[in-house]
Amino acid sequence: MKNLKAKDFKQKLIAITSQDPAQCYQCGKCSAGCPVRDFAEAPPNRVVRYVQLGLYDKAMTSPTIWLCAGCQTCTSRCPQEFDLAKFMDAVRELAIAYGVKSADKKTQEFHEAFLKQIENFGRAYELGMLIDYKLKSKDFFQDVDLAPSTFSKGKLSLLPHNVKGKQQIKKIFKESGEVKK
């Protein structure tokens, strides 16, 4: 585990989300309504607690941050008007930036595979994404039975669509990479 400068993490988190985690009073309503709650070891409110206590590595290595589906149920019901979905996005972003080993590699790999297609072609290229993801995750057999019907329905195109303004997109991705450094 990297030795993290505590101040640094919190400052960055606040800068990204424009809110202070101290706002959370740990009532657990977010967790109570979270659709992926049953699949997470640490409930979402506990991830906030880790940050409140300065246990940033615990927050960043928690699988919960990757399980978050971004459904915003927590945000819309929070009695303290704390945007937990935004908080989760920021902790994830910082975890990647700090090079913390993800506790949920599959999800991270999926997102990386997805974004790679956009970086390369400008639009999501589902087949390329699936191949890329399967190469990374080594999960070759999942959904293979779906492939033939998906092709026959014309839902997966064999070739990517190339966006003309790709240079702009590459630039955006480059900037995103810079930010993380």
Binding site: G70, R92, E112, F114, L115, I172, E175, S176, V179
Partner: peptide, 10 residues
Amino acid sequence: TSAHVTSHIL
């Protein structure tokens, strides 16, 4: 989803 879960600027 992939952009907002990993990079704010993206």
